[in-house]
Amino acid sequence: MSDAANRYDAGRIHVIEGLEAIRKRPGMYVGSTGPRGLHELVFGVMGRAVNEVLMRGGGPVDVTLTSDGGVRIADDVPGIPFEDAGDAGTPGLEARLTRLYAGTEPVGRRAAGLDRFGLGLCVANALSSRLTVEVRREGARSTQEYARGVALTPPAPAGPATGSGTTLVFWPDADMFETTEFSYDVLAERFRELAFLNRGLRISLTDERSPGEAGTERFEGGVPDFLAVLETRAGGTPVHVDIIGFETEDPRMAGSVEVAFRWCDSHEEVVHSFANSVRTPEGGEHVAGFRAALADAVTAYAEERRLLRAANPVLGAARVGEGLTAVLSVKLDQPEYGGATHGRLAGAAVRSCVEEAVRDHVGAWLERHPEQAAAVVDRIVRGAGRD
């Protein structure tokens, strides 16, 4: 083969951008072309609605799995105009639906992380065979329709509107995904977490795909309610009546921590941890700080009240955690992670702040509730004595 045939130069480079790039390599934008990537489309679209609601202080987001295989997501916050916001440079809805990195999701402690890739509406539009959007704003409705990311018509007036909000419906492209059938359980689990971790957010999920069986499940509450659900699933009998919990902000870590936990008569420790409403399955500094502080607070209380004898083993974090079910949520302006998958939270300030807050609040709770505290210590000591 000649040198000319082997030569690699600029003329051989093929640049693909925007929607073409998304459709050429969909897995790069949603993680996979299997069920995980399919559900990422929903989370990407939901991210805009949820964060608009949270920035407003709370409200509903309604999700419907339609009978024809689509997903409808509706909110009642002020509708996003289709056009860009002039000199302010804020991209309008049409730009968000057609351009990468236009109007990416907000960041910071008051934003919920749904879209792991931060690309949102544009990716869902590009990977859908069809997408329609309706905006209700200033007493008027406007609509637009897309096919595989390309606008079929300009935004068009559609009559008067009662209230405000945005409704977006999309149908995943069967040419892009191994399956286009959404799992109700996968979506319900994530929506339940979001609603529990963000008090004031109300999410409903309706499944219209089975004739005669359509129903709506609603998710709302707070972290203590989340813990109660987890305890019901796990079984076991609580050792003490009260759920121990608190929420506090700390400027040293530029964020807040919220915790709820309770011991029961099981042998397993279960800690569900989150950073900015995203699961951290590998734990991290917030979990390390929580476990260390819990062990310190219980040990200090037990020693002060002479609830331990010389024969008792040391009450380390593993022993204190036996039978514990906990929800630990931190919300940070600038979260740091120990890897690209965001499965483990980093940051020395997070650990020290969580540790201090947990030690103080748990110590105070034990002092205020001596009967329940005695039951907790007795449960831990008896459990440790079996080793």
Rank of each mutant, 00 (worst) to 15 (best):
K24L: 10
F196S: 02
I80E: 15
P78K: 08
V239Y: 02
G222Q: 09
F117P: 04
L131V: 07
R99P: 05
D378P: 03
A254I: 08
V327L: 05
E355Q: 15
V241M: 07
F246K: 00
G79Y: 02
R190Q: 11
R233I: 10
R136F: 02
E138H: 10
H240R: 12
V42E: 04
V150S: 12
E213M: 14
A375N: 09
A346L: 12
H272Q: 07
G69A: 08
D115G: 00
D225T: 09
M176G: 03
H272I: 03
T179L: 04
E189D: 06
H361M: 11
Y101T: 10
R137T: 05
L332C: 07
L227G: 00
F177E: 04
M28C: 07
K331I: 13
L187A: 04
P281I: 05
D173F: 03
V150C: 09
E178G: 11
C353E: 14
E138D: 15
A300P: 09
V107P: 00
G236L: 01
V53W: 05
A4V: 14
G236Y: 02
D3S: 14
D68N: 14
E282R: 03
R306Q: 14
A349F: 06
R344S: 08
P26H: 06
A364S: 12
P281W: 01
A348P: 08
V223W: 01
D175I: 07
V150G: 10
G37R: 01
I203D: 06
V271H: 02
A384M: 09
A254M: 08
T248N: 05
F246P: 00
A74C: 13
G222M: 13
A295K: 04
L227S: 01
P81M: 00
A158S: 14
T206E: 03
S266W: 05
R291S: 07
G31E: 14
D207G: 13
L19Q: 06
A124Y: 03
M176W: 02
F170T: 06
E303H: 10
R368I: 10
V223P: 00
L121K: 01
V241P: 04
E258L: 05
M28R: 08
P251F: 14
D225R: 07
D207I: 12
L205F: 11
L201E: 03
N125K: 05
E189N: 09
I13N: 07
R110F: 11
N51M: 10
A260T: 05
L19T: 02
L307H: 10
L227Y: 00
A310H: 12
G283P: 02
M55Q: 13
P26W: 03
G236P: 01
A95R: 15
G338W: 08
L205V: 06
I22R: 03
M176D: 04
T90N: 13
D76K: 13
V330H: 01
I73E: 02
R48C: 13
R96F: 09
T166E: 02
R56M: 13
L168G: 01
V320T: 08
M46W: 00
F170Y: 15
I22L: 12
R218Y: 06
F82P: 03
